[in-house]
């Protein structure tokens, strides 16, 4: 599904990723852990094609094809999804309008028929109910006045609407209390499927108690320094990054 080969990337001329290699197959959930400043968020932005993140070396293959020349919207239409650590507030854009515009843009790009208002509404209502999202929330401007938990639930709602084949979750647990974490994790777990790959980026092991990964990788100073099974996360929790990563606090 996703193959990252010797990926090196710079922001404002500063090298952040220094040769990342990672392969994720369909149906797998991989976690990337690492101390602050290790390049975790940069990796998520580079994968989704954000401007200003320059690939200096290496390649990203998604479904066997290089995507480094693709725009963020092209990547989204081909099935990639990034759940943001800090979902953006956009006053003046109603959540419903946003969801419908995005879904239909993706469908159009894939040559599929757009959903009409009635079908769309039915679809969203069903998904929102599963995630305990009140309809009132969908009438508000996008993420405006949403609590941290509501914002993350809205991200998961988008994920379930767009049905991506590769979902990247960037620090999904940040800003969530245990109850919200549980709702969000349940939402994510519902979306686990043999056709879908997930990359969970997190600083803390806590999230991985809820979204249990198949593999765990430790990112430090722009490189993956260790990989292992889910028990690696536990080891990190017990010993701290210092035991694995040189010079980490």
């Amino acid at each position: 599904m996703l193959e990252i080969k010797n990926l090196q990337a710079a922001v404002d001329g500063k090298q952040i990723l220094k040769g990342v290699n990672l392969t994720i197959n369909a149906g797998e959930v991989h976690a990337i852990m690492g101390p602050n400043g290790s390049g975790k968020s940069t990796l998520s932005y580079v994968l989704s094609g954000r401007d200003g993140y320059e690939i200096t070396e290496g390649d990203i293959l998604y479904k066997g094809e290089s995507i480094v020349e693709q725009s963020p919207d092209e990547r989204a239409a081909s099935g990639m999804f990034l759940a943001f650590q800090y979902p953006l507030e956009i006053p003046g854009v109603p959540t419903m309008t946003f969801l419908r515009t995005a879904l239909n843009a993706q469908r159009r790009a894939r040559g599929e028929k757009e959903l009409d208002a009635v079908k769309f509404l039915k679809l969203v209502r069903g998904k929102a109910k599963e995630l305990q999202i009140k309809e009132e929330m969908l009438k508000r401007p996008l993420n405006v006045g949403f609590s941290g938990g509501e914002k993350k639930r809205n991200e998961v709602l988008q994920m379930s609407l767009f049905e991506p084949t590769l979902a990247i979750l960037d620090e999904t647990d940040s800003g969530l209390d245990i109850d919200a974490l549980k709702i969000v994790s349940d939402g994510v777990n519902m979306l686990r499927s043999p056709e879908r790959a997930m990359l969970v980026i997190t600083h803390y092991q806590r999230l991985l108690d809820y979204i249990v990964p198949d593999q765990v990788h430790v990112l430090a100073d722009g490189q993956i320094v260790r990989s292992g099974g889910k028990e690696l996360a536990k080891e990190l929790e017990d010993s701290g990054y210092g035991a694995i990563v040189p010079n980490a606090a």
Binding site: D51, D73, A76, A77, G92, A105
Partner: peptide, 25 residues
């Protein structure tokens, strides 16, 4: 905001128009 919209599959031109309209709302 622009990147957020684009990462959801909305092309740059449409995303910009959406943000301008939102600004005037």
């Amino acid at each position: 905001q622009l990147f957020y919209l684009r990462s959801r599959g909305i092309d740059e031109v449409t995303a910009r128009a959406l943000l301008v309209e939102a600004f005037l709302t």
